[in-house]
Design a protein around this nucleic acid. Structure first.
Lengths: 207, 188
DNA sequence: GCTTTAAAAAGTAACGT
DNA sequence: ACGTTACTTTCGAAAGC
């Protein structure tokens, strides 16, 4: 009766309020990371799907929103690392990773492992590198993947090393330190990947 | 040339065995902490008493209920030796302890080598129930249903098998993985 | 879900020298 | 640029938050 009706109103009120909050969270994090509109929309679709399947129970709205955004970024091939999403959302990276696995399983989303190549455009532009360097780095990564040199390595680290090598080869050198900073890895990692790539792909990087 | 043939790949090594048992009930952990040498008991941090033995090199967790966990052993026998050691120490100090309790293997961890360097991306894309996030961890996580175990597969071909209850399941799991890998190669 | 224990795999990180 | 230590992942049991 009236009471049941009132409860329904309350529930739908709460649901709408939560959804509105989630969508504003998605927008807040997305704009902080400078993500394009299609990624935000993709994340919103994922979030609504999670709501419809009751996957939010026992989880925080912020956590699910962050995980949806992480998944959307990968889907749209403009990946952000868990650390970047974590920093922008103030949700623990462990929780984002856990929720992401849960969502991809429950929503039947099978995403391929992040391809290092997808990080190249963003890192290269942040380093102010021209298109030729970007293309060269991508070519290096394609060869590296064929020879199994990317398996098990962090995608950002391999991408960073490829960009560093390409920048040196094409006379637009960036320091390991600068590349490391935009890629969010240490210089040691770039050096390790650099050695591996130049040795196994017969690249002469004479300074 | 190898005179033993080619079927010696599954050189499986058990690197850790987790066992549980019961040595009594209503154990006074404060008292036990004083009796046992390398014992730590901080109920604020964890309800169990932690005791490390150097021979065998294991760690034991003792609870107020009398339940005991032993980790770090290389075999069930080694874990039993460790449990008998603490039982003797506690009994000699006058505590009410069960003499030779039944121990149950709860988990075993093994390492092995596939003998080939698998393409983790291919496995991740073609096999359901696998997780591979190189950004987070270099190994691919493969959960098997038949022997209910989890296998971590690395680009080097090295493998870690955990969740084992029986030692023999390690080889069964390994062979299933190798068979699956062959199927992937055929499809490719 | 977390806390504590042990162990391996390979990559990455953060110290010190 | 090294080297060392330590963290990431997986598993299970325990009692309690």
């Amino acid at each position: 009766r009236l009471r049941k009706w009132q409860r329904r109103i309350r529930v739908s009120d709460a649901s709408e309020r939560n959804l509105a909050f989630a969508l504003s969270e998605l927008d807040r994090i997305a704009s902080k990371l400078g993500l394009p509109r299609n990624v935000r929309e993709n994340a919103a679709v994922l979030y609504r799907g999670a709501v419809e399947k009751g996957l939010i129970r026992g989880r925080s709205i912020e956590g699910v929103a962050a995980a949806a955004l992480y998944a959307a970024c990968r889907r749209c091939r403009v990946p952000r690392t868990l650390d970047e999403i974590s920093e922008a959302s103030r949700v623990d990276r462990k929780e984002i990773g856990r929720t992401y696995r849960f969502l991809s399983r429950e929503l039947g989303i099978k995403l391929a492992p992040t391809n290092p190549i997808d990080y190249v455009p963003r890192f290269a532009s942040e380093l102010g590198l021209p298109g030729e360097v970007e293309s060269k780095a991508i070519a290096i990564l394609q060869k590296a993947a064929e020879k199994g040199l990317t398996s098990g390595r962090g995608p950002t680290g391999v991408a960073a090393a490829a960009i560093y090598i390409a920048s040196v080869l094409l006379g637009n050198r960036r320091t390991q330190r600068d590349v490391a900073e935009v890629a969010g890895v240490t210089e040691v990692t770039i050096r390790n990947r650099y050695k591996e790539l130049t040795e196994h792909l017969d690249i002469d990087v004479t300074l | 040339m190898n005179n033993t043939g080619e079927i010696m790949e599954p050189k499986i090594k058990i690197v850790n065995v987790v066992v549980s048992t019961q040595i009594g009930s209503d154990i006074d952990l404060e008292e036990a902490a004083l009796i046992l040498d390398n014992a730590e008991y901080e109920p604020e941090q964890f309800p169990g008493l932690v005791c490390r033995l150097s021979e065998p090199k294991v760690a034991l967790l003792i609870f107020r209920s009398g339940k005991v966990n032993c980790t770090g052993a290389k075999s069930k026998e080694e874990a039993e030796v460790a449990i008998k050691k603490i039982i003797k120490e506690l009994k000699d100090a006058g505590m009410d302890i069960i003499d030779d309790p039944e121990v149950k293997v709860q988990n075993m961890v093994a390492t092995a080598d596939l003998g080939i360097e698998p393409n983790l991306d291919d496995i991740a894309l073609m096999i359901e129930g696998t997780e591979y996030e190189p950004e987070q961890f270099p190994g691919l996580v493969y959960r098997l249903d038949d022997p209910k175990v989890v296998v971590l597969i690395f680009g080097s071909g090295k493998v870690v098998i955990t969740g084992l209850k029986k030692e023999g399941d390690a080889e069964i799991a390994l062979n299933k993985i190798l068979e699956t890998l062959r199927e992937i190669e055929e499809i490719k």
